[in-house]
Simulated assay, not measured.
Amino acid sequence: MTRLLAFEQQLTDLTESLLHHPRFEIETHTQGSIDEERNDGAAVLDSIDEWYQVRLDPAYQKCISRFSQLGMHWSIDEPDVQLTGEFNIKYLLDVIGDVPPHLAGDDTPDARRQLFSDFRVIDDTPSSGTGTLSSIRLQGTSVTPELWFFDVRRDVFRMEVDYCEYMRHLLLTKGTYGWQYLFTDAPLRDRDFKGIVNGLKLMLQTFPEIFPNEDFAPLRARLAERLR
């Protein structure tokens, strides 16, 4: 049996905690096969460099999952709490070699088309179909690619986190819809973001009760800062 890497164990612990908690309804749960040819994150990064000439920061070793796919779509449906979320983490080795997502329309400006052509999807919402996804932006051989969040109902926003920070925040938020906006310059005080903000507030009220050993104070402070 393949020994799980530390981050893989964290991801499976997350899915197990949601699967077995009575307050969560699980809509879908997907766990793909694991890459048994590469024993650790360093081997994955070496293959990315060899195959695609992209040399990523060695720090990425600590946040690599070798599962071809690991995702979950969940909800809490209670009289006072209606909360939903989804994550669908893809294997970074596959991500780098993937094609860009089809985001451009007939009226998309050339500069925006070029931006989209650099995207490779690391996390999306295939079960709920919310039209949101997170991508790394491949530019040459950058060791720390930018992260961008796309929302078909709103716009595309550069995120203020790197890949490993993204994964750390995903573990904490459990993929609650819109959590990525906490780390963008999106105008969260605008009316168009009212539903997103309400969901984030509800998450920060509810999750400390469900997960008392996790620290949500940084996310609470981040939301307060974004709403100033």
Rank of each mutant, 00 (worst) to 15 (best):
T2W: 07
R3Q: 14
Q9W: 08
Q10V: 05
T15Q: 12
L18D: 13
H21P: 02
I26M: 09
T28W: 06
D35L: 06
D35K: 10
R38K: 14
R38T: 10
D40Q: 09
A42S: 13
L45Q: 04
S47A: 15
Q53D: 13
V54D: 00
D57H: 09
A59Q: 13
Y60H: 02
C63F: 02
C63Y: 04
I64G: 00
I64N: 05
S65Y: 02
S65E: 07
R66W: 01
R66N: 08
L70Q: 12
I76V: 14
D77W: 00
D77I: 09
Q82L: 12
T84L: 10
I96H: 02
G105W: 00
D107M: 10
A111T: 11
R113Q: 15
F119D: 03
R120W: 02
V121E: 11
T130A: 12
T130I: 04
L133E: 10
R137A: 15
G140C: 10
L147E: 01
R154T: 07
M159K: 07
E165G: 14
Y166W: 06
M167C: 11
R168T: 09
H169D: 07
H169G: 03
H169K: 12
L170Y: 00
L172M: 12
T173Q: 05
T176L: 10
Y181D: 00
L182P: 00
L182H: 05
F183M: 09
T184D: 07
D185T: 10
D185F: 03
A186D: 10
R191D: 09
G195P: 05
M203P: 03
Q205M: 11
T206I: 04
F216K: 09
F216N: 08
A217F: 06
L219S: 04
R220D: 14
R222Y: 13
R226H: 08
R226N: 08
R228A: 09
R228P: 01
